[in-house]
């Protein structure tokens, strides 16, 4: 019976496509599971607050790498957030022209910049210029990845602000720039903050841009113009050594990093849940 055969195909395709979803989720679960199992035993206060010890010596931790990650990501935010947000404001409020469309297009294309290339740019642009690996070079490299993301998410959040809100403000005799700065940005702030936090989550885990910009350091940070340790690079360094106790540290570092990033990712969905519900 034809009707039956079609029903069966429909059912089979539903199951097949559902299986795709199930299989795609397996790696994620496996990663979360193995990182937790292998990392949990090594994570303690010392691990979070001490600097690494040489191979063979017990103890030591990633305190300096955690510190360094905050510093480098902080520098990236100082550059990336203002540039990205203001460029996004331009695109939405003034960008209805050829220049605006071109910027939008370039920002879109820039989101595909390979992260290793961003690192190379940090190297040729900052490291070569100052003659040393540095926290600043790392921050610049990360900001290259951050700017296009923040630009586009800001533009998109601003576009969601209803025209009627802008009109209400203009009709009160508020100049356009104040309308944009206080009313439009204020209305879109939860979307913009979400975009910014997600971009921070994205760059916090980046390793490739930092390999030859911020490089690494076995000690606490000693200046923005000096090499600095970061979690992703430290995890990588530990992972590719042949020493099992450093592998354990790599897992523990991975656990800390993944928790930070998942908190950012899942957290933004709750924290910035609109106060007034637009």
């Amino acid at each position: 019976m034809i009707w039956n055969k079609r029903k069966i195909i429909d059912r089979v395709m539903s199951i097949l496509t559902a299986a795709c979803v199930a299989i795609a989720i397996i790696p994620l679960l496996s990663i979360l599971y193995t990182v937790t199992i292998n990392g949990i035993s090594a994570v303690n206060i010392d691990f979070l607050t001490q600097i690494p010890k040489p191979v063979g010596e017990a103890g030591g931790g990633l305190g300096n790498a955690i510190q360094g990650t905050f510093i480098v990501v902080g520098i990236a935010c100082l550059i990336g957030l203002p540039v990205g947000i203001l460029a996004g404001v331009y695109l939405c409020e003034y960008g209805q022209n050829k220049f605006g469309r071109f910027v939008s297009f370039v920002a879109d294309v820039l989101t595909g910049t390979p992260s290793i290339v961003a690192g190379m740019f940090g190297y040729t642009f900052i490291v070569l210029y100052f003659g040393s690996f540095s926290a600043i070079a790392g921050g610049v490299a990360l900001s290259v990845l951050m700017i296009p993301i923040v630009t586009r998410t800001t533009e998109e959040s601003l576009r969601l602000v209803p025209g009627s809100i802008k009109e209400a403000s203009l009709a009160l005799g508020i100049p356009k720039w104040k309308t944009t700065l206080y009313i439009v940005l204020g209305t879109a702030r939860s979307g913009i903050i979400t975009g910014a936090l997600l971009s921070i989550a994205r760059i916090s885990g980046e390793t490739a841009p930092l390999l030859f910009t911020s490089f690494g350091n076995m000690f606490w940070a000693n200046g923005l113009d000096k090499p600095i340790s970061t979690m992703p690079v430290q995890i990588y360094t530990y992972a590719i050594t042949p020493f099992p106790d450093w592998h354990a540290k790599a897992w523990a570092g991975a656990l800390v990093l993944i928790i930070l990033i998942l908190i950012l990712n899942i957290g933004v969905r709750f924290v910035t849940r609109r106060k007034y519900g637009v």
Binding site: I25, I31, H247, N265
Partner: peptide, 22 residues
């Protein structure tokens, strides 16, 4: 959301998992 969460896992951690598990 869960599928997209995979994209949030840092590359270096996927690599670590790749070396020892995959």
């Amino acid at each position: 959301f869960i599928i997209e969460l995979l994209a949030a896992v840092p590359s270096v951690i996927i690599g670590l998992w790749g070396i020892f598990i995959l």
